[in-house]
Design a binder for these strands. Structure first.
Length: 768
DNA sequence: CAGTGAGCGAGCTTCCGCTTGACTT
């Protein structure tokens, strides 16, 4: 039996540490928090500010195991992370396992190396109750905000909605960005470029320069072109400036999510799932971290690798400091556990993510890149305007040999960056080959992607590495925001050219503002946000988290009592909730009356209904029931017109008869459908339910019939009925109401399978 | 899984931050 029990948060960490400590130590894991506020109800006694904690059922067995081992051990070492949450985990462990707080050892380390662990064991301390209380304040505040605001939404907007300190601000960012884009003035301007011929060491080369001024009017630009083509153009100035580029710091959770999105096209949660696998297999350090710090062990491994691969002069050991608000730095940065592994044996995606981490880590310890930037200024005899052209040449690549950080608008910028300019002298005469004016439109700010939203939240100090991915999922699950399908608009623009004294123009086309995969607010999201911002401005303030974090800090440093902070907050918060609940507005949040229905003379209105945005003719207190129609997601609750709304009531409609049966067109939960012979078929996107003809509808039905016929490959009827069906992913087996995957190599021969062969597949799947 | 939405009223929903499994055609 082991004399010592060490408890850490993560099982993967426990395994590693046990190796370092030898047989006198048993290392177990708490799997994060072991106790939380009771799931239902607020579970905070507001009189005495007493939280009601419980061990959730799914953790009982694990906690019992811990308790058993703790009772057997001579001493227990609490080694949860060194931050607010970690300290609280240790305290809950004391409480639940019945440990004496004054005698139990609390140890911390920031890197998982033998030295760091032994050092920690040599310097145990006691629990820091101030830090624990700061966590209790955080937990209680979040529960109060979440469990008081959500029910207000159930009443005023729609059941099952949610609000919280983090998610509601995330939604606000997206709603406000969309408004900025709507309100953006797409101002036109004209950009002027000239193509000059120059003599580069006896060779004639061309060089494109841009004018230092942009014109608002096309006529101004035309006038400029005509007056300047034949002017004298001379190199006025030529400046060479050395620039230094520095590598980006090692990955944190947030920067990993952003780079993996830009470079590998992964969603935030895909990145985290892959990183988790890499961590569990021992390839990388912990993936939920806000620290940019690397252990000395890693830094010297980097030096060794860099010297071996690229030579001494590429190496430059450095330390990074975090700039993000509220960082707690309980772990290292995300890095490979062994820099000698340039690549690993794993799935293709895991490999790509690993290599990204390896490169970023290595680059962070490499020399700066040296760049020479040349700017040439060209004057003209026809006016005082100047043309400029600049180019960059890399004189020493340094870390760029390994890694270059990408930016959100990489496709747009960056193509001209590394161009080399001709060798010119001040005073050189240049000949103008042609001059163009290109029509441009000012670009609105970009919509948020998952990753850029994480970046913004981190900047505001809202949310933690462990919650970025879940928060992004929550606001999509609640249908406050949606991944956009806004197609790129095609826009035409004019390029006007003067050549040999003659003006000519071409109309060109480009695709703009294609926002596939970007986050767009839904009607529900907009209504909920506007309601919360109006009624709970304090909570929705972008600085709310930063402000309360300061209070938590004062609790952690012993300068304030957590119960006093929370009761002060509640004194301000409770009246806001009461006011919102008791204000009896006749309308629900976001409701709009659009006008009168000409047919019935009744009012037409739109609102968020129980199942989403809905249009209504008539009111609830009429004798007759009001009529309802679902508003499709392409229409906005805030902008839909009376005419568009009345159109929604033209469904369902009977469009004719086919083989003696009625054909009905309607729209339901899953969009427009055609109903025939008691069967529903979804209408493909190209059809408008209001204009579809009987012939078109019948073709849709016939297509569905054909598909149905192909669906059944084989049926073994009888007591143990087995079906082989054709699905989206190829053939599969249905048996006893369950689906079973068919091995790929059998797909071709699916129709020839025997009953016994099918049972074999079913049984082998069951064993697993 | 598809014509949902009155009113009546019971009973349900919900937060953030720490951790992984158990699920999958």
């Amino acid at each position: 039996m082991s004399k010592n029990l060490v408890i850490v948060e993560s099982p993967a960490k426990a395994k590693t540490i046990e190796k370092f400590l030898g047989k006198d130590y048993k290392v177990m894991s708490s799997y994060g928090h072991i106790r939380d506020l009771k799931k239902r109800n607020i579970s905070i006694d507001m009189q005495n500010l007493e939280p009601e904690y419980e061990v959730p059922t799914e953790k009982r067995k694990m906690v019992d195991d811990l308790k058993e081992q703790a009772e057997k051990a001579e001493s227990v070492w609490l080694a949860s992370d060194e931050d607010r949450e970690g300290e609280a985990i240790s305290w809950h462990l004391c409480e639940v396992l019945g440990l004496d707080e004054d005698k139990t050892n609390r140890i911390v380390f920031h890197e998982i190396t033998k030295n760091a662990i032994l050092e920690a064991i040599a310097h145990p301390r006691r629990l820091d109750m101030n830090l624990v209380n700061a966590q209790q304040a955080r937990r209680v505040l979040d529960r109060l905000v979440g469990f008081k605001l959500s029910p207000v939404l159930w009443k005023k907007v729609k059941p099952s909605l949610s609000a919280g300190r983090v998610q509601s601000v995330a939604v606000r960012l997206i709603v406000e960005r969309e408004r900025e884009i709507e309100a953006f003035a797409h101002e036109r301007y004209y950009r002027l470029n000239a193509v000059f011929k120059a003599n580069d060491n006896g060779k004639e080369v061309e060089m494109k320069a841009e004018l230092d001024t942009r014109f608002k009017m096309r006529a101004e630009a035309q006038d400029f072109l005509l007056r300047h083509e034949y002017a004298d153009h001379t190199v006025e100035n030529l400046v060479k400036k050395p620039l230094t580029r520095m590598p980006a710091p090692p990955f944190t959770t947030s920067t990993l999510q952003q780079e993996a999105a830009r470079k590998l096209g992964l969603t935030v949660s895909q990145t985290m799932a892959l990183a988790q696998r890499l961590y569990e297999n021992g390839f990388i350090t912990y993936m939920r971290t806000d620290s940019v710090n690397l252990s000395n062990f890693c830094k010297s491994a980097c030096q060794e690798t860099i010297k071996k691969l690229y030579g001494e002069k590429y190496s430059s050991q450095r330390d990074y400091k975090t700039h993000s608000k509220g960082a707690q730095e309980a772990h290292e940065a995300i890095r490979p556990t062994d820099m000698a592994n340039q690549s690993i044996v794993a799935t293709a995606q895991e490999k790509r993510l690993y290599e990204l981490i390896w490169k970023r880590t290595l680059a962070s310890q490499m020399a700066n890149a040296e760049v020479e930037k040349t700017t040439i200024t060209i004057k003209t005899s026809a006016s005082s305007h100047l043309f400029t052209v600049s180019g960059e040449t890399v004189t020493f690549d340094g870390f760029l040999k390994v890694y270059r950080e990408s930016t959100d608008d990489d496709e747009v910028k960056g193509k001209d960056k590394s161009k080399t300019l001709p060798n010119l002298q001040i005073g050189d005469e240049l000949l103008c080959k042609e001059m163009t004016s290109t029509e441009r439109t000012a670009q609105p700010p970009a919509r948020y992607s998952e990753a850029s939203l994480v970046h913004k939240l981190e900047e505001l100090g809202i949310g933690r590495p462990s919650t970025y991915a879940p928060t992004i999922s929550t606001i999509q699950q609640r249908q406050y925001v949606q991944k956009g399908e806004k197609k790129a608009d095609e826009r035409s623009y004019i390029v006007e050219t003067v050549k040999n004294g003659k003006l000519s123009y071409k109309t060109k086309h480009e695709l703009v503002a294609g926002d596939k995969g970007k986050l767009l607010p839904t009607d529900v999201g907009i209504v909920v946000n506007d309601y919360l911002v109006e009624n709970f401005p304090v909570i929705l303030d972008y600085n709310f988290t930063a402000n309360v974090e300061q209070e938590f800090d004062s609790i952690a440093s012993g300068k304030a009592k957590w119960t006093a902070i929370i009761s002060d907050f509640y004194k301000e918060f409770e009246p806001m909730v009461d006011a919102a609940i008791t204000t009896h507005t006749v309308h629900k949040a976001g409701e709009r009356v659009l006008g009168t229905d000409p047919a019935s003379g009744k009012p037409v209105s739109v609102k968020i209904g129980r199942f989403g945005p809905v249009a209504q003719i008539g009111s609830a207190d009429d004798e007759e029931k009001p009529r309802f129609a679902h508003i499709p997601s392409e229409k906005n609750l805030s902008t839909i017109t009376l005419e568009e709304t009345l159109d929604l009531f033209r469904l369902p409609r009977i469009i004719g008869e086919y083989e003696g049966q009625e054909v009905t067109i309607g729209t339901g939960r899953f969009g427009p459908y055609v109903l025939y012979d008691k069967k529903f078929t979804s209408l493909p996107k190209e059809f408008d339910p209001l204009t579809i003809t009987l012939e078109e509808a019948m073709k849709v039905i016939e297509d569905k019939r054909k598909q149905e016929e192909q669906k059944h490959i084989k049926i073994f009827d009888g007591e143990d009925k087995i079906e082989i069906l054709n699905g989206r992913y190829g053939p599969y087996i249905v048996y006893g109401g369950k689906n079973y995957r068919m091995p790929k190599n059998l797909h071709e021969k699916a129709a020839e399978l025997t009953y016994e062969e099918c049972m074999k597949i079913v049984n082998s799947a069951k064993k697993k």
